[in-house]
Simulated assay, not measured.
Amino acid sequence: MEMLLITTAAALWGCATGMLVPRPAYRLSVPPEELWRPACPAGHPLVGIGNGWLGRARCATGDTYGPSTFSVASITAVVCALLAFATGARSELVVWLLLVPAAVLLATVDLAVHRLPDVLTLPLAAAVLVLLGVVAMLPGAGGSWTGALLGSLTSGTCHFVLFLISKGFGFGDVKLTLALGAVLGWYGWAFVVIGTFAGYLLGALYGIVQILAGRGGPASRIPFGPFLFTGTLAGVLLGFYTS
């Protein structure tokens, strides 16, 4: 019964926070030379809570914009429920639930414009380490903050090297792996290996499908962020069931 309550509460949290993702996703889905969109597609300035960042993606005319609210909220709810089911009542679940909406937001932006904004990736990496540092001092924590720090540094360094030698890997991906490496490293090196491998495998499969469909070539860049996130989720889930 306890697990059912935790999973249900996590799913509701994911649904509620996921409904707030489309507006910032729309605002951040811009070319690298722009910071964000100041207005809706109809030209109305985006104002309100949080300087216009919070709220429904609907303009004054009633038209919606940005990614599908239903799809984004559903994905966020499912991811939160899966993490709650795997993690249980451990203290770090609170951190995962706080990070999921940000992860979905980044993945949505990357899919739209092949870009992971610094305004999100760098604070996300810092937030993960700070939050896990707090959780490590609480009872019921199931990981190691030292492991999270080492996972972050190792993953970031390895992906920076990959960025230098590969044209298909962006610097935004490097900064993102600082956060994801910390998440996986919290549970141990086995999780880092599983999550990283899963992310690369999914990205490679996507690239192959794109080539076969005639939508790209071997040198084409792909939005790697969503696959890094999915690989991290897979690493946490599979790590629990194989450990």
Rank of each mutant, 00 (worst) to 15 (best):
G48P: 09
Y206I: 03
P38G: 02
S74L: 15
L150G: 01
A25R: 11
S220W: 05
P31E: 11
C40W: 12
G181M: 01
P31T: 12
E92V: 05
A11H: 01
A102E: 06
I49A: 15
V100H: 03
P41N: 09
L162D: 01
T177H: 06
L12E: 09
V113G: 06
I208K: 12
C40Q: 07
P101V: 06
D118V: 06
P218T: 07
L4R: 12
Y65M: 02
F70L: 12
A204Y: 10
V135W: 03
G50N: 12
F70M: 13
L46E: 10
G181E: 04
L116S: 08
A103R: 00
V119K: 14
P123C: 07
L138H: 04
R37P: 01
L180G: 07
A126T: 04
W189G: 04
H159N: 02
C59E: 15
L120S: 02
A127D: 08
V100W: 03
V209I: 06
V236K: 07
F224R: 06
P41M: 03
L132I: 10
C158V: 13
E33F: 07
G62H: 11
V100C: 02
G140P: 00
G142N: 03
L228H: 05
V94G: 05
L132E: 12
G185N: 06
A103E: 10
A148C: 08
S29K: 02
L28Y: 06
L12F: 08
M3F: 01
L164K: 00
G199K: 08
A16L: 15
L129M: 15
P41Y: 13
L106D: 06
T242Y: 10
L202G: 00
A127F: 15
R58K: 14
L124E: 14
S68G: 13
A213I: 03
V236S: 05
R221S: 13
A16G: 05
P32V: 03
A141M: 10
G140S: 08
L28G: 08
I194K: 05
W96M: 11
V100S: 06
A9K: 01
I194C: 06
L124W: 11
T154Y: 01
L12C: 14
G170H: 07
L212S: 13
V79T: 08
V79Y: 02
A190Y: 05
A107V: 09
A234Y: 09
F169M: 11
T154K: 00
F160L: 14
W145Q: 13
S155T: 12
S144K: 07
P139V: 03
G147R: 03
G88W: 07
P24F: 02
A77Y: 05
S68C: 01
T61F: 06
L120A: 11
A148R: 10
G231Y: 02
G172E: 02
L162K: 11
V193C: 13
